[in-house]
Structures are given as structure tokens and as C-alpha cells.
């Protein structure tokens, strides 16, 4: 099919799918970020009863395929249908959107918590000690000193996780959702036009590139002190430097 005709016929559907992809992964990332914060603190705790369960949780969700996790949630819930109906939670597990969202949240929470743990461990001891010396409570210390710095350290890695989850969300198409991948597969099944896969790939690439840009901008904003600075040296000094090199 002619590319122009292809786009005019299926373009709106693709964009609709892309919007669902963005909604699903964006929402999951946000909820995951909220849950990852306390979890990473628990993961760093010296108390085993706090850190060990979190460790097992993180290891499980990072060590198994997200597709298998999605099946576990979406199909697995059926085994407990009566129990879930009794506690009035069945509506959640009956809906593929909520199941996919729940799976993505569980998954990204594990990844984000682990990245944030790296950030917390990277906060210089002196800062924490200084906060203690000021008499800050643990809550205040985490809120004002540890977490802001931990996020700064983990920020580039969190950007990778955003892109990984966005790409991973393509499996939502397997549980009947019409995200970008789902629309693409449906259109291919109707038209047998291979170029639709290429358009979808282009759209995914475009979304990731926009995210990379946004992330780079945000990184500049929150880590201004870490940017490479270009210092304009006077000409005479410049030549002197190159001469000594």
C-alpha cells in the first residue's frame, strides 16, 4: 500500500495505541516511583526483617520475565476468583488494563527500588553525619538530605528504566489491550501490510528519543553542578596551556 494511504487509513489508530502505551507506562512509572521510595529505604535497613523481604521481592521481579508476571496476575487471578469476589477485588483482576498496570507497577517498583538503593548508598557519609549532628530526625534526614541526593545520583539510570518499561509495555498487547503494539498487530492481521511494523518501530523510536531529550534536560536542571563547564580562557593563556601539553 502507498505510505500516504497507509498513514491516512491507520495513522489515527496507531496514535491511539501510542497514547495507551504512554498512559500505561507513565502511570506505572509514577506509582512505581512512590512505592520504590520506602522500599529502597527498607532495602538499606540494617534490620533483617525489613531488608530481607524487600530483597526477595526485588530479586523475584528482576529475575523473571515480565510476560510471565503478567500471565501470573491476569490469568492466575482466576484461580482465586471466589476469594477475590468475596473481598470485592475481582473488578481489578477482570480488567486487562488494570492487570497490565498492576504488573508493570510491581515490576518497575522492584527496578526503581534497586536503582534508588544505589543512589542512597552513594550519598556521602559526611552529609548524613552532618544531618545527624544537626539533630534531624530520620524522617527529616531522608526527606531533606538523603533522598534528594540519592535521586540525583540515580537519575540517569532511572531514565534507562523509563525507556525499558516503555518498551516492555508492548506485552500488554498479549492480554488483548490495544496499545501501540496491539494496534500494530491488529492492523497487520487485517491488511497483511508489513510496513505497519516499520511505522510502529518509528513511533516507538520517536517516543524514546523524546524521553531521552526530556531526561537530558531534567538532568541538567537537577545536577547543574555536575555539568561539564566550558571556561573561556583568554587567548594568550590558551596557547600557553597547549604549549605545556
Amino acid at each position: 500500500m502507498h505510505p500516504f494511504k497507509m498513514l491516512s487509513e491507520y495513522g489515527p489508530l496507531l496514535l491511539e495505541g501510542a497514547w495507551l502505551t504512554i498512559q500505561l507506562s507513565g502511570l506505572a512509572l509514577l506509582i512505581g516511583a512512590l512505592l520504590a521510595m520506602p522500599m529502597s529505604v527498607a532495602r538499606c535497613s540494617p534490620r533483617a526483617w525489613l531488608s530481607v523481604p524487600v530483597r526477595i521481592y526485588i530479586s523475584f521481579f528482576r529475575g523473571t520475565p515480565m510476560l510471565a508476571q503478567l500471565f501470573l496476575v491476569y490469568f492466575g487471578a482466576g484461580q482465586f476468583r471466589h476469594e477475590l469476589q468475596a473481598v470485592d477485588l475481582w473488578w481489578l483482576f477482570r480488567d486487562p488494563f488494570y492487570c497490565a498496570l498492576l504488573t508493570f507497577v510491581l515490576n518497575t517498583t522492584a527496578y526503581q527500588a534497586e536503582l534508588l538503593r544505589g543512589g542512597i548508598l552513594g550519598v556521602p557519609r559526611g552529609e548524613v553525619e552532618a544531618a545527624r549532628a544537626y539533630g534531624m530526625s530520620a524522617w527529616l534526614r531522608y526527606r531533606l538530605i538523603v533522598m534528594p541526593h540519592a535521586y540525583r545520583i540515580a537519575f540517569p539510570a532511572l531514565g534507562n528504566e523509563v525507556i525499558l518499561l516503555l518498551k516492555g509495555s508492548a506485552i500488554a498487547s498479549v492480554v488483548t489491550l490495544f496499545d501501540l503494539m496491539g494496534q500494530t498487530r491488529a492492523i497487520f492481521a487485517k491488511s497483511f501490510d508489513f510496513s505497519i511494523y516499520l511505522w510502529a518501530a518509528l513511533l516507538y523510536l520517536l517516543i524514546t528519543m523524546v524521553i531521552v531529550r526530556i531526561w537530558r534536560y531534567l538532568e541538567k536542571r537537577i545536577n547543574p553542578h555536575l555539568q561539564r563547564r566550558v571556561i573561556q580562557a583568554p587567548k594568550a593563556v590558551k596557547t600557553a596551556v597547549t604549549a605545556t601539553e
Binding site: K167, G168, I171, S173, M181, T184, A200, A201, L205, T208
Partner: peptide, 9 residues
């Protein structure tokens, strides 16, 4: 940048 699933298809 392309999802693994899309690459597979």
C-alpha cells in the same frame, strides 16, 4: 529503542 516484541514480529 524498539521493543523486543516488535523486533521479534
Amino acid at each position: 529503542g524498539i521493543p523486543e516484541l516488535l523486533t521479534l514480529f
